[in-house]
Design a protein around this nucleic acid. Sequence first.
DNA 1: ACATACTTTAGAATAATTATAAAGTAGTTA
DNA 2: TAACTACTTTATAATTATTCTAAAGTATGT
Lengths: 140, 140
Amino acid sequence: MHKMNNKNKTFIDKLRSSGLRPTNQRVEISKFLFNRKKTFHFTVEELKNSMNLKRSKKISTATFYNTVHALKSAGHLKEFSLENNTSYYDTNITSHHHFFDNGKVIDIKSDKITFQKLPEAPKGKKIKNVEVVIRLENNN
Amino acid sequence: MHKMNNKNKTFIDKLRSSGLRPTNQRVEISKFLFNRKKTFHFTVEELKNSMNLKRSKKISTATFYNTVHALKSAGHLKEFSLENNTSYYDTNITSHHHFFDNGKVIDIKSDKITFQKLPEAPKGKKIKNVEVVIRLENNN
DNA sequence: ACATACTTTAGAATAATTATAAAGTAGTTA
DNA sequence: TAACTACTTTATAATTATTCTAAAGTATGT
Ligand SMILES: [Mn+2]
Ligand SMILES: [Mn+2]
Ligand SMILES: [Zn+2]
Ligand SMILES: [Zn+2]
C-alpha cells in the first residue's frame, strides 16, 4: 500500500523521528518543507497558504501547526523571530547567521563570520550558540 | 502649575520629541522607562503590570501601547523579539548585542564583540547594523 | 470485521495588539 | 472666566497568531 521511494525517504523519516505517523497530510507538508535545495524560512500561515492554494481538499490550520511543532520539537526545524510577533521557522537547523532585508531572510553560513573578540559567559552559565543578524538597507 | 525639575527634563523631552504632550500618564511612563541607571528590556504587558500594581488609578492598556509606540517611532526605544511572538522593547537604542538566558536579556556593549571576518552585503544593499545574540545555558 | 489508538478538522478559546468612539482634559481666545 | 477646539484617555470591540477541544475519520492489530 505504501510505496516509499528513496526520494521520499528523508522527509518521511523526519516525521517518524518526530513521533508522527506518515499520514498523507504530514507527508505532503514534510515534503514541501524539506524536498528543496535551499533553506526555507517561513511562517505557519505562509506555509498553509502556499500549500493549500494548489489543493482542492485543504489541510487544516491545526494540522499545519501540529506538524510544524512536532518537527520543531524533534529538532528538524528551528524557530526564530523577526520584529512582528510571528514565529518563523527555518529548515536549516545548524547554528548559522542571517541577513534581514525588509522581512526577507537570507542564510549566512557559519564560517562566513568569525570573531576576534567575544565576551565570556556569566558565572554558572555557558555559551550555547552565537548567532549574528546583519540588517540590510538599500544603497543610497 | 507644572513644576519641571531638571531630573524630569530628559524624559519629558523624549515625549515632546515624540510628538506627545507631557500628560500625567505619559510623564509617569517615560519616567519609569528612562529614569534608571541600567538598560531596561520589557514587554508592554510587563510595563503595564509593574506600573499599575502600585497605582490606585490605573493607566489604560491603550495608553501604554500608544506611548511606547510613539517613543519607539521617535527612536527613543528599540524593538526586538524573542521566540515567543511578543514584542520586547529596549531602552538602549544604540546598536549592541545581547545574552539571551532563558527569557532573561542582558546587554553586551558593542565594543565587547569584534569580527575577524564578515560577509559583504548583496549588491544594491548595504549593512545597516550587525547584532549578535549569545544564547546561554547552565553549566552542566 | 472489530476494537483501539491515533489523526484530522471545524470551531471555540486565548493572548498580544490595534482600532473605535465616547468622555475627559488642556491650550487658546474672546 | 466662558467658550472653542484640539488632543488625550479609556473601555470596549476587533484583529491576528496561535492553541485547545471534541467530534468524526482513518489506520493498525487481531
Ligand atoms: Mn504585532
Ligand atoms: Mn501569540
Ligand atoms: Zn536560516
Ligand atoms: Zn539591549
